Computed example of a mutant assay.
Amino acid sequence: MENYTLCILKELTQNARKINTEQISLVLDKIKKANHIFLSGVGRSGIAIQAFANRLLHLGFEVSIVGEISSPHSCPGDLLIICSGSGETTSLRSLAERAAANRVDIVLVTMKADSTIGKLASSILTLPGVTKDENNRSLEGFSQPMGTAFEQLVFLTFDSLVLNLMDESGETSETMFKRHADFE
C-alpha cells in the first residue's frame, strides 16, 4: 500500500509557491471594503467556499452563501466571491453575469484567469492545478484525479486569507468563537 499523503503534500507545496501574493492582497482589500459578501461554488469547490464563508462570518463579516433562503438582495458595494477551477461552470457564469449587471464586485478563485467568469471579475486569484477535464502527471508520475489538487489548495488558500484578516483586524480564536454557532 502506497502512502500518498507525502505525494499530495509535495504537490500542494509546489503549487502554493506559485501563488501570486499581489492577487492575495487585492482579494483581501475587496473583502475588507465589501458591504456584504456573497459566496458561491459548486461541487468540492462549493464545499471549500462554504467553509470560507463560515470563517468570514466568525471574523464579523456580513456573508451569505448564494442560493440559501436567508441570502439578501445584492447592492452595489457588495462582493461576490466565486470559486470555480475552470471558470466556466454554467450556473456560476450566469451568477457572475447577474452580479456584473447589478454592479456587484466579483472575485474569482480559479485555475483559468482567461475564462468567461474571469472576464467578468474585477479581481482574480489564480491557483495552479489542472481541471477535472485535464490529465497531468505533475510529480514523477503522481497525479491526483479531477482537479483535486486545486480543491485542496483552495481550502489552504482560504485559510491563509482568514489568517491575514485575523492579523490585520486583531481578531483571535477567542474573539471569533463568540460569533460561532451555539445552536448545533
Score class of each variant (00 low, 15 high):
2 E>G: 00
150 F>R: 04
76 P>Q: 05
177 F>Q: 09
182 D>R: 15
125 L>C: 08
103 R>E: 12
66 V>T: 06
141 G>Q: 06
93 R>S: 07
27 V>P: 00
71 S>V: 09
154 V>P: 00
60 G>V: 04
155 F>E: 09
56 L>C: 03
62 E>Y: 12
161 L>F: 12
14 Q>G: 03
90 T>P: 01
122 S>A: 06
96 A>S: 09
90 T>Q: 14
131 T>G: 13
46 G>H: 06
171 E>T: 04
77 G>N: 07
158 F>R: 07
91 S>I: 13
104 V>R: 02
36 H>D: 10
133 D>C: 08
61 F>R: 13
143 S>A: 15
117 I>K: 02
80 L>Y: 03
52 F>R: 12
129 G>A: 09
9 L>F: 13
96 A>P: 02
116 T>L: 02
90 T>H: 12
174 E>F: 04
156 L>K: 02
51 A>Y: 03
86 S>Y: 07
94 S>P: 00
38 F>Q: 00
142 F>S: 08
102 N>D: 10
182 D>H: 05
81 I>Y: 02
137 R>Y: 13
119 K>Q: 15
93 R>C: 15
154 V>A: 14
144 Q>A: 10
23 Q>D: 09
42 V>G: 09
133 D>M: 14
115 S>K: 01
24 I>C: 09
33 K>I: 01
171 E>Q: 15
18 K>C: 10
157 T>H: 07
129 G>D: 05
105 D>E: 14
26 L>T: 10
149 A>F: 05
73 H>Q: 11
60 G>I: 04
115 S>E: 02
111 M>D: 07
38 F>D: 04
76 P>T: 10
179 R>E: 06
170 G>V: 03
131 T>K: 04
25 S>W: 03
87 G>Y: 08
28 L>M: 10
177 F>L: 13
172 T>F: 08
84 S>D: 12
67 G>V: 04
173 S>Q: 06
6 L>E: 10
40 S>N: 07
26 L>V: 07
74 S>R: 11
32 K>W: 08
59 L>M: 10
59 L>W: 05
181 A>L: 08
47 I>Q: 10
172 T>W: 13
24 I>L: 05
152 Q>N: 14
84 S>I: 14
102 N>Q: 15
183 F>H: 04
13 T>H: 11
48 A>G: 12
29 D>G: 06
71 S>W: 07
44 R>F: 01
83 C>S: 13
129 G>M: 01
141 G>S: 11
33 K>W: 00
74 S>A: 13
183 F>D: 13
151 E>V: 01
156 L>M: 13
38 F>R: 01
146 M>N: 14
44 R>V: 08
99 A>V: 02
100 A>D: 11
43 G>D: 12
149 A>M: 08
152 Q>W: 09
88 E>V: 13
15 N>V: 00
37 I>K: 01
115 S>Y: 02
105 D>Y: 02
153 L>F: 02
75 C>E: 15
48 A>Y: 00
